[in-house]
Computed example of a mutant assay.
Amino acid sequence: MTYLRSGLASAWLMAAAAILPAAPVHAQDLELSITAPAGAGGGWDSAARSLQDVMMKTGNAHSVQVMNVPGAGGTVGLAQFVQSAKGSPNQMLVGGITMVGAIITNKAPYNLTNVTPIARLTGDPLVIVVPASSPYQTMADLMEGIKKDVGHTIWAGGSAGGADHILAALVTQAAGVDPAKVNYVAYSGGGESLAAMLGGQVTAGVSGYGEWQGQIESGDLRALAISYPEPIEGISAQPLKAQGVDIELVNWRGIFAGPEISAEDKAALETAVQKTVSSPEWKELIKAKGWSDYYAPSAEFTSFIASEDTRVHAILKSIGLAE
């Protein structure tokens, strides 16, 4: 009888365990892989590695690895991520406005509705620069050069259709020239476009301010303007709007999980990211990199992405980069 009672108790406990909710996932137990869908040295790579560093320093993840998958404005990395991260509780992807543009211009098979928005993280002011040896001292000088010979005004930046390309085309349009004629050379990472700038192979370049901050401060590059609507403390380059050019553009970046993750796993990732970006360590890091805190939680970020898709499509269509 004792054995029978023991067996019945074990069976009851097993049945109860089957209907009880699973134990919550603790953020500090997370073992994560973050895909940076671009080469080393660029903005997405920097964002992924910054998140990696602070999540581990603050104990909001046990381990974090970063994997670079460059190509086609992030759409190669996006496609790989959608296929490999379905339902995964430990994979995330960095993306942003450049990916939105690349999805549209490349007619990519996947878009940001195929992944799970976790949080918008940062807003990076785009900066327009020229090499230190350039004859262009001001934004007005550069725009005059575009008017005189748009074909010989060569721009360096990230992938075709991305934020850098959009800004170069908008500046060309503001100079009174057909934006479809912009001579834009797309590079897969910030390191490559920087090399082109320092090597004198291009006329001007566009990137996130943080990517080229060191070269601007050292005097190797001359910053002519930023794309933010208002001046930013610590950045001497003035907004395009303050220089009479009616253009503003925020290079935002966010973090995504794979498709079809459980509500519990999504909540664990949201909590881990929210605690990370609320930490003093994160606030110190983004200040050092010249980024702005642009945090938005999952629901707000999801709505924002939908509005950005509509806005970016309209801009790309107006400058001949989309149908």
Rank of each mutant, 00 (worst) to 15 (best):
T2W: 12
A11W: 04
A15F: 13
A17C: 14
H26V: 09
H26T: 06
H26P: 03
Q28D: 11
P37F: 10
A38C: 07
W44I: 08
W44A: 14
S46Y: 00
A48R: 02
L51G: 00
L51P: 00
M55D: 03
M55A: 04
M56N: 05
T58F: 00
H62V: 01
S63W: 11
Q65H: 09
L78Q: 03
A79Y: 07
A85K: 09
A85F: 11
N90R: 13
T98N: 12
M99W: 02
N106Y: 11
L121P: 01
D124L: 15
V129C: 09
P131M: 04
S133N: 09
S134H: 09
G145M: 03
I146F: 02
D149H: 00
G151V: 04
W155V: 11
S159V: 03
A160K: 12
V171Q: 01
Q173D: 13
N183P: 11
V185H: 13
G189V: 00
G190N: 00
L194W: 13
M197F: 05
G199W: 08
Q201Y: 11
S207M: 12
S207A: 15
G210C: 02
G210V: 02
W212S: 06
Q215L: 12
S218N: 12
D220K: 10
R222P: 02
L224V: 05
Y228V: 04
I232N: 04
I232L: 13
Q238M: 07
P239C: 05
E248C: 13
L249R: 10
N251R: 05
E260T: 10
I261E: 00
I261M: 03
A263I: 08
A263E: 15
A268D: 10
A272T: 15
Q274T: 13
K275Y: 01
V277D: 03
W282H: 07
K283R: 14
E284H: 13
E284R: 15
L285P: 09
K287A: 08
T302A: 15
I305W: 08
I305Y: 01
E308K: 13
E308G: 01
E308N: 07
T310M: 11
R311F: 13
H313M: 07
A314D: 11
I315K: 00
G320V: 06
